[in-house]
Amino acid sequence: MVTGLTSPAGQAEPMGQEPMGQEPMGLTRLAGPASLAGPPVGVLALQGDVAEHMRALRASGATPTAVRRPDELDRVDGLIIPGGESTTIWKLIDIFGLAEPLRKRIADGMPVFGSCAGLIMLAARLPDPASGQQTLGGIDMTVRRNAFGRQVDSFERDLDVKGIDGPPYRAVFIRAPWVDEVGPAVETLATDPGTSRIVAVRQGRALATSFHPELTPDWRIHKMFVDMVRDPA
């Protein structure tokens, strides 16, 4: 049970004490002690699959920490915006005064990675936002929410992702958004073969995927992000 109101400065969350839920099934042991020395990387912990990103970060050599307040954001070197409901996450960002601190850190070059709802949050433009819904920006792209359809249309498939060595990446798309168009500064990392839509992008220190690399025990994309945090070239 988490009872501390503010986590002490610079201190990592103890294992298994994520603010939301616990470690997902059967993979706890993969998160080795190596994480203790890794760079502090936050996961925006307002709503969504926070614990899965924490696990993936730990397995990728970072020290994950939950971010729900501006002072917690100050203490991380990079940030993941998880999967979840983008309308809910935006409302909570807005209500709890995180919008400007987040926009400032992203504009200042903090490495940031968004999956699914996180990709939506990093979009410069949404053609069909819910009422009052805004984004943080960071990537010069237009993103269409729930573009792949409802849950019965959700799917998993193998995907080639630029910058990822080895076999194709098993990508899980859940009520997923896609990228309608990107500006010249944005690098397309993956395209869905079924629809030819862009589903993974990078612009500078901002990375985003329509799919959920945190749901499968293949840490290659999280490792790519942790490398961006270690060496923010």
Partner: peptide, 9 residues
């Protein structure tokens, strides 16, 4: 995974 996206909600 769909249920994972509802967590904390």
């Amino acid at each position: 995974g769909m249920a994972d996206m509802l967590k904390g909600g």
